[in-house]
Measured scan of single mutants.
Amino acid sequence: MDETGKELVLALYDYQEKSPREVTMKKGDILTLLNSTNKDWWKVEVKITVNGKTYERQGAVPAAYVKKL
């Protein structure tokens, strides 16, 4: 869990989004888990830093590609 009490997951593999509802992640990324009720796809929040600014993006990733921490 992070400092706000939200559950975290670890990306076990790289994943490139294939639709606007998904998010890209790299192996080793730590993501915030938002919903894991679907056994195949979990909704997560990814933090992306671009030019020193951090953005948050929500989307789905394959459940088999992440592990709860």
Rank of each mutant, 00 (worst) to 15 (best):
V61G: 01
K53N: 11
G52A: 05
L33S: 00
L8S: 07
K43L: 15
Y15L: 02
W42Y: 07
E7N: 10
K6W: 09
T54D: 08
E45K: 11
K27T: 05
D29F: 06
W41R: 01
D14F: 04
T49S: 10
A64Y: 09
K67M: 14
Q16V: 14
K26R: 12
D29S: 06
L33R: 01
T37H: 10
K47A: 09
D2V: 14
L33P: 00
K53Y: 12
M25D: 00
N38E: 10
R57S: 04
K39E: 10
K39Q: 10
K18H: 07
V23D: 02
V46F: 07
L10T: 05
E3K: 14
L8F: 14
L8I: 07
K27E: 05
V44L: 02
E3M: 14
P20G: 09
P62Q: 02
L12N: 01
V23M: 08
V44N: 00
T4A: 12
T54Q: 10
K43D: 14
M1V: 13
E56I: 15
Y65L: 14
M25C: 06
K18C: 11
E56Q: 14
W42M: 02
P20T: 09
S19L: 06
Q58E: 08
W42V: 07
K18Y: 04
L8R: 11
E45H: 07
L69Q: 03
Y15V: 01
K43T: 15
T24H: 02
K47D: 03
L8G: 01
K43E: 15
P62W: 06
T32E: 06
K53I: 14
W41P: 00
K53L: 13
S19W: 05
V44H: 00
V46A: 08
V9Q: 01
K18E: 07
L33A: 01
Y55K: 07
T49W: 10
L33M: 02
Y15F: 06
Y65V: 06
Q58K: 08
K68C: 09
K47V: 12
E3L: 13
T24Q: 02
K39D: 10
T49V: 13
D14K: 03
D40R: 12
G28L: 03
L34P: 00
M1W: 13
G52L: 04
I48H: 08
E3I: 14
Q58R: 11
K39N: 11
A63E: 02
K26N: 06
Q16R: 10
K27A: 12
M25A: 01
A60C: 15
V61Q: 00
E17G: 15
G59V: 06
T49Y: 11
A63P: 04
K67F: 08
L10H: 03
K53G: 07
E22R: 05
G52S: 05
K53Q: 13
G52H: 05
K26T: 07
V23P: 01
K67D: 04
T54G: 05
K18N: 09
W41K: 01
L69P: 01
W41G: 01
Y15N: 01
G28I: 03
E17C: 12
R57H: 06
V9E: 00
L10E: 10
W41M: 06
K53M: 13
S19D: 10
L12T: 02
V50H: 09
K67A: 10
N35D: 15
Y13V: 11
Y55H: 08
S19E: 06
K6R: 14
K43G: 07
D2C: 15
K47C: 13
K39L: 10
G5S: 12
K53W: 09
D40Q: 11
V23T: 04
L31C: 06
M1H: 14
Y55S: 08
I30S: 01
V61W: 03
D29Y: 06
V23H: 03
K18G: 07
